[in-house]
Design a binder for these strands. Structure first.
Lengths: 143, 143
DNA sequence: AATCAATATTAGTATAAGCTAACTTTTGGG
DNA sequence: CCCAAAAGTTAGCTTATACTAATATTGATT
């Protein structure tokens, strides 16, 4: 399928781009389930209005997104009721939180202040491969 | 303006989210100008079809995006003619390439293989603050 | 110089993520 | 226990990013 006309470099570049575009599609889902898990753990429930507050978006936006997450099998929700994670959603949440924590701890170990580490980790976490994550962990252990 | 009802933690979380959402808006612009600069440097021009190939999207998509970049003052383009960077676009391209290189080199210094480093840098670069970038540079110098 | 292949544009569509405003449902304090 | 405030939903809009298919322009080769 690959176009003969294209250089290997161009093809690699395009593939990397594809990967980033794909990551964007899962980012929001990861952020939502991560936050839902946190809220359930700490307050016993994840209400739409809390998600909206913690995410800094409107209730209507959260409602939309929750519909999509439900369609995609990550959460369950009934009208006017609290939101829950499916088994798949919980697995994704666990993975995301673990990765988030590793990235954050790594940045702090590097000398970045906790505030900035938090902020940067939020964006970076979704783009770190397992290979890189393992190197982060190695670095943390060596410290 | 800040809602009394919200915990400091929730407010910080929302602010981080806002920041990531904002970053997403500039990501594509950065990727485009970075690539345009590279193509002009290496081949003398940046054609729409080349951008499409290197980004792995269709010509129509590139055309749309270039319109937006032009509207935003980052590139100039005339119908059926090659694309150029404005002064602002060039500044952004320089900044992006420098940051991209630092992230990539840092990952390699950490022990990540070049292929993976390239791929991860593509996603990570847009979410690294100046503070973190400086720590990456420090690490590279210490090596 | 004419024609055709390569390149660029336009039109029309889809999906995701956001918003405001209006509405309905739930719930808790008097 | 009722009713107002809080919470959730819906409708309708916007912008960005993608797509395909059709069209228009350019430029290179015969």
């Amino acid at each position: 399928m690959s176009d003969q006309r294209l250089s290997a470099e161009a093809r690699r570049h395009a593939a990397r781009f594809q990967r980033v575009r794909d990551a964007h599609q899962t980012e929001l889902a990861e952020d939502y389930v991560e936050l839902i898990a946190k809220l359930i753990e700490e307050t016993g429930e994840a209400r739409l209005v809390d998600l909206a507050d913690w995410l800094g978006v409107t209730k209507a936006t959260v409602n939309n997104t929750i519909q999509r997450l439900q369609r995609d099998g990550l959460v369950t929700s009934k009208p006017y009721r609290s939101i829950f994670l499916t088994a798949e959603g919980e697995a994704l949440a666990r993975m995301s939180r673990e990765r988030h924590r590793t990235v954050r701890d790594f940045l702090i170990a590097l000398g970045v202040d906790p505030q900035t580490a938090d902020a940067d980790a939020e964006g970076i976490e979704h783009h770190v491969s397992q290979v890189t994550l393992d190197k982060f962990k190695e670095f943390l252990e060596r410290k």
